[in-house]
């Protein structure tokens, strides 16, 4: 089993899927000859040629709008937004067409496509390069939002996203792009979309996280577990549609829950999870569900990001508070 970074693992998935299915192509700014600014599409140009690794003009709406046309005409485009902070220019096409085409035509036309976008902070980048806006995309019915947390699940989820008959926003935590490696099996591994993964099983507390927050959360969970507490850690993997069953089953068992989110606190995925817990298992709760999140301020420049994004120590404190409630 080769040890790969997340960049290499996603690259592997793209390569595998392009080799398996000649309808699949990658497109976006600098994805071809340059191999992408993060090198996620490295080598695809050499292997599959410029017609299937398309260096597009610089226009985000144009990239998604043409990908929609390609998908409707039978291709399986994987479009890249260079940074999620530039993706808002494509939201018109996402909301207006990609997510609606199936419902609009009751399945006569569909948009099987993937929009990849690096998101999140922690890499000391310029303004607009550090946000975590998964809730924005999760709010549009008809589109899926997927966030891997490590190389192995990134590869397996990317294969599933490309094969999915519906449009998928695939948000890549760029903080995790190269910060660690994992064994990625040489044989094909596909994870189903719409299902969360139970990373650690436990009975006393449920912790939910996703994307780049998984690493500091694991650190905090393991530190607290050493004190003899049994913690269940859930990695969402798919943000929308949300696997509430896995979360609610767990909370029913533990009675306590902490959600760790990089994004601003309000109107986010954590809020939605709390609402679902209220709907399904309110009476099993022994403590209020806690959110450990970014704050409702404009994402600060990187000089301040270390304390803005919940660090492991803050998560650890939060877990103890909820356990002690």
């Amino acid at each position: 089993m080769p040890k790969l970074t997340m960049v290499q693992a996603i690259n592997l998935a793209l390569k595998e899927e392009m080799a398996r299915d000649d309808r699949v192509l990658v497109m976006g700014e600098d994805v071809g000859v340059d191999g992408g600014v993060f090198r996620v599409t490295d080598g695809l140009h050499e292997e599959f040629g410029e017609s299937r690794s398309i260096d597009t003009p610089l226009a985000e709406s144009g990239i998604l709008g043409t990908a929609i046309g390609m998908a409707m005409a039978g291709l399986r485009p994987v479009a890249e937004m260079q940074f999620s902070g530039f993706s808002y220019l494509m939201i018109g096409q996402w909301e207006g067409n990609a997510t609606r085409m199936r419902s609009r035509t009751q399945g006569q036309h569909t948009c099987p496509l993937v929009v990849r976008m690096p998101y999140g902070g922690g890499v000391r980048a310029l303004e607009h390069h550090s946000e975590s806006r998964e809730a924005t995309y999760a709010h549009f019915p008809g589109g899926k939002v997927v966030i891997p947390s490590g190389p192995r699940n990134a590869r397996a989820l990317m294969l599933a996203a490309i094969r999915d008959p519906d449009p998928v926003v695939f948000m890549e935590p760029k903080h995790s792009y190269r910060s660690f490696r994992e064994d990625v099996p040489e044989t094909e591994e596909v994870l189903p979309l719409g299902q969360a993964h139970v990373e650690r099983e436990g009975d006393d507390l449920t912790v939910v996280a996703w994307g780049a927050m998984m690493r500091p959360t694991i650190k905090a969970v393991d530190a607290v577990a050493k004190t003899g507490v049994s913690i269940e850690l859930i990695d969402l993997l798919t943000i929308s549609p949300l696997d509430s069953d896995t979360i609610c089953r767990s909370v029913q068992k533990t009675g306590r829950c902490v959600i760790v989110q990089e994004a601003p606190r309000s109107f986010g995925v954590a809020s939605e999870i709390i609402a679902r817990i209220n709907d399904e298992v309110l009476l099993y709760l022994e403590a209020p569900v806690k959110r450990l999140t970014g704050y409702d301020v404009v994402t600060p420049y990187f000089g301040r990001e270390k304390s803005y994004i919940p660090p492991a120590a803050r998560i650890e404190n939060g877990l103890r508070e909820t356990l002690d409630f």
């Binding site: 709008g65 929609i68 409707m72 005409a73 207006g96």
Partner: peptide, 29 residues
């Protein structure tokens, strides 16, 4: 009929990009 006809586009101009993408697909194939 529906095989190669898209539904009405209410948000002004969005369909223009779809045509460019469809054109690309036709050329590629």
């Amino acid at each position: 009929v529906g095989r190669r006809m898209t539904p009405l586009a209410v948000v002004v101009g969005t369909q223009i990009l779809h045509a460019a993408g469809i054109g690309y697909a036709l050329k590629l194939k």
